[in-house]
Computed example of a mutant assay.
Amino acid sequence: MPYLEDFEVGQTHRFGRYEVTRDEVLDFARRWDPQPFHLSDEAAAKTHFGSLSASGWHTAAMTMAMTVAEADTREGGTLGAVGIDALRWLKPVKPGDVLRVESEVLEVRRSEKRPAMGSVRSRTTVFNQQDEPVMRFEPIVLYRRRAG
């Protein structure tokens, strides 16, 4: 991951590719979000989803997997996150979808209490293979500074 000084407001980054599988949707739902429309084609057909769809939390987890995979290819100092604002699931994610991520930096702040670090707030949007946004949120991530 980059350091705090590598970020500027307005900067954008596109990354990731994640193929959503039926088995993964079912496995995640069984363990973490066992609602009928995540577990059964028949139950999902009776809802506004129309067919089996991934849990929104699964979509968030897949996004995290893409983010970590991208971070492993970059050098620097991420220190975790303080939270997520404005999380919205915009469109159901279905088995067979292929997801990708776009992120835009909204704010870069140096920490007054901890001079060796700061935070970056960004708007992250996850898209499916048809370039339709399926999820949007604003993570606030902590980064090391090159010089404290």
Rank of each mutant, 00 (worst) to 15 (best):
M1H: 15
P2I: 14
Y3S: 06
Y3P: 08
L4R: 03
L4P: 03
L4I: 04
L4V: 05
E5A: 01
D6T: 10
E8N: 14
E8H: 15
V9E: 10
G10H: 08
Q11S: 08
T12G: 10
F15E: 02
G16Q: 03
R17A: 12
R17I: 07
Y18G: 03
V20W: 02
V20T: 00
V20M: 02
T21W: 01
T21F: 02
R22W: 01
D23M: 07
D23V: 10
D27S: 13
A29M: 01
R30G: 03
R31V: 09
R31I: 08
R31M: 11
W32H: 13
W32T: 08
W32S: 10
P34S: 03
P34K: 02
P34L: 00
P36I: 05
P36A: 08
F37R: 01
F37M: 08
E42L: 04
E42H: 06
E42G: 03
A43K: 08
A43M: 06
A44C: 03
A44K: 00
A45Q: 06
K46V: 11
T47F: 00
F49K: 03
S51V: 12
L52M: 03
A54V: 00
A54W: 01
S55T: 04
S55L: 03
G56D: 01
T59I: 04
M62R: 03
T63R: 12
M64D: 02
M66D: 04
A69R: 12
A69G: 07
A69Y: 06
E70S: 12
A71C: 11
A71N: 11
D72Q: 15
R74Y: 13
G77M: 07
G77V: 10
L79H: 10
G80N: 03
G80T: 05
I84G: 12
D85L: 07
A86Q: 15
L87P: 13
L87V: 12
L87M: 13
R88D: 12
W89T: 07
W89P: 05
L90M: 11
L90S: 08
P92G: 02
V93M: 01
V93E: 02
V93I: 02
P95T: 02
G96S: 00
G96V: 03
G96I: 05
V98Y: 00
V98Q: 00
L99E: 04
R100F: 10
R100W: 11
R100N: 13
R100Q: 11
E102P: 09
V105P: 06
L106W: 09
L106G: 07
V108E: 02
R109T: 13
R110F: 12
E112W: 14
E112R: 15
E112K: 15
P115D: 08
P115H: 04
M117Q: 14
M117E: 15
G118D: 06
R121S: 12
R121I: 14
S122V: 12
S122A: 14
S122P: 09
R123V: 12
F127L: 02
N128M: 04
Q129T: 07
D131S: 05
P133T: 08
P133M: 07
V134E: 02
M135F: 09
R136H: 13
R136F: 13
F137Y: 15
E138V: 09
E138F: 08
P139V: 12
L142E: 09
R145T: 05
R145L: 00
G148P: 14
